[in-house]
Design a protein around this nucleic acid. Structure first.
Lengths: 340, 340
DNA sequence: TTGAAAGCGATACCAG
DNA sequence: CTGGTATCGCTTTCAA
């Protein structure tokens, strides 16, 4: 824990010169800068965090609020936390965790104690209580996800509707006229904001294109994942030649397994596309086409917006939807019997 | 962001009195204290974090290092992070996240900038590089998990060997003479420190008691989780009347499913005990006895030890193993054909 | 291009 | 039981 004073002494300059040399906030003679940097390195000097916060009116910390809900999907959630942390480090920011009940009380606490410069809101619910809080506190905040009432907020998210539409476009373009959709469990459509958006995007585009579309929302637990299997079977037997999946990784695996059990090959007999997955769909057997939800994309944008808010930029409150991308892995083809 | 000065003014006292009243570090007249507390509440006053760190030489922050490894089990990991955060809040501490490459570089950074008062080390590998770091930095650290070389460190963990032994004791006490063990995938036994400890505890106690014990370490992915199913089948056909499980939740479900498929009832035909699970084994069908790994137990102890280190207590470097507990849920019974 | 010194907002010592 | 004030280590204005 060397202090700036020691660095100054070692380099034979004043402390203000050290500060400026290290922050780059004003020009320093090359030779002086060299001596300072060397001294700093030798002493393993880093500005004291507390002193910096106090004098610099910058904490270099983001508060990340994440209410681990009962139905939070752990792997996806972890990916977002990790992506946020990595994005933050690019700006020399650290991440402070606010969990559970603390996700709200903590926001207030952090705001009034000046522990963070901005709040990043994760795992957003449609009627999220953090919306009201974000409006009241002094800190800028960015939502990763879109609550129902988002007036005056800065939100970032994948354009889930466009993502679903992209999947529909793909298989429709290949000639499919009947699409089966396997979604999350029904309860998710009430608690989370994105499942309905995927569904809506799918149904809207299907209607626009005049293709048939059947939706099933199976429970994703239970013995042998029976309801996912049932869903696959009923959709296939109902004539679907393309399956669009928006569910967890295990349900993906079960669905593919059931297709195999039914003797349907992918993509020769059935085309399959995954929408909004955070896991690697190319690792399945066979690899599955995907319109993924990329945590780093959302989190990098969120962090960038947060930085601009911190710097005082007046960002227009708005929902920034990230354009989806289609990743082909060979799981789609024209439907069986299609004229080439 | 009210300051102490405003509170003092509102309450008609000096700022030092406000500070003392709020920190409780010296006696204050009841009436004075009342006025101060009211003023603080009305102004939503909280001491500025930076100023507090600087003047008080306490950051009220724990750094939590967690290198999201590729094979990190997300739900378990999340449970530990959450438990740590909750335990920390009991002492009015916040948690700063250090992930990825930052898990090491971040430790150094946080130590030399005085951003945290202590480091909590999660997801410990047998040959963890953070061990060497912990020895070099000025901050106290507590490991949640036990690295191979833990000399001079304070470590906290479940007594996995005792946990496994407890499971063996249970079924042996009921009359079982042949135990089947289904563990994590083989790779985990190299990368993590606890799977080998469970296995060792199991085999040791089985040997002591003179009961047969067969170990299978199935891959936990793959279509239909075939290797878990194979494991169950081969163990049962090999004569095992009791199954000890130390694997992820899905593998548990698959194993139970396979038992059902084989027509074996639990516990009438086969007894089942789970060891080291962080998930709720009573939610399976049927509910499964468990010697659980309780994140809150480990994390609360770790935080308590960290607090004592921060306060300057000279704790002896040591591995604190938490005694396991057996939770009965009705999945064990005497083996079929046992004389009552 | 550099230095001196005034804060930043608490804590805690020294007085009274 | 309460107040004044030095101090924490840095950033940043003001001056040279």
């Amino acid at each position: 824990m060397a202090k700036i004073h020691e660095v100054a002494q070692a380099a034979g300059v004043s402390i203000s010169t050290v500060s400026y040399a290290l922050s780059g906030k004003r020009p320093i003679a090359p030779e002086t800068r060299r001596r300072i940097e060397e001294a700093a390195r030798e002493l393993d000097y880093r500005p004291n965090a507390g002193a910096r916060m106090l004098a610099g009116r910058r904490t270099q910390i983001f508060a990340l609020t994440e209410p681990f809900r009962a139905d939070t999907h752990a792997p996806a959630h972890m990916a977002f936390v990790l992506a946020t942390s990595i994005a933050a480090r690019r700006y020399e920011y650290d991440v402070l965790l606010l969990t559970e009940e603390e996700a709200s009380a903590g926001m207030r606490r952090v705001a009034s104690s000046g522990l963070a410069d901005a709040v990043l809101v994760l795992d957003v619910a449609p009627d999220d209580e953090r919306v009201a809080l974000a409006r009241r506190i002094a800190l800028p905040s960015v939502f990763i996800g879109v609550p129902d009432d988002h007036e005056g907020l800065v939100c970032v998210d994948l354009d889930f509707e466009a993502a679903a539409a992209l999947a529909v476009d793909r298989v429709t373009g290949l000639g499919h006229r009947s699409i089966g959709f396997i979604g999350h469990p029904p309860a998710s459509y009430l608690r989370s904001n994105f499942p309905p958006r995927v569904r809506r995007g799918l149904e809207l585009r299907a209607a626009e294109l005049g293709v048939e579309c059947r939706v099933v929302l199976p429970e994703s637990d239970g013995p042998r994942r029976a309801s996912v299997r049932d869903a696959v079977r009923s959709l296939i037997e109902g004539g679907a030649t393309a399956l669009v999946l928006h569910c967890d990784d295990t349900s993906h695996a079960v669905a593919l397994d059931e297709l195999a059990a039914l003797g349907r090959r992918v993509p020769e007999d059935v085309s399959v596309v995954s929408v909004g997955a955070t896991f690697d769909t190319s690792a399945f057997n066979p690899p599955i086409d995907s319109v993924p939800l990329v945590p780093s994309a959302s989190c990098e944008l969120a962090v960038e917006l947060a930085m601009r808010l911190i710097e005082g930029d007046e960002l227009p409150a708005s929902v920034r939807l990230i354009a989806p991308e289609y990743l082909a892995h060979g799981s789609t083809a024209p439907p069986p019997g299609a004229a080439d």
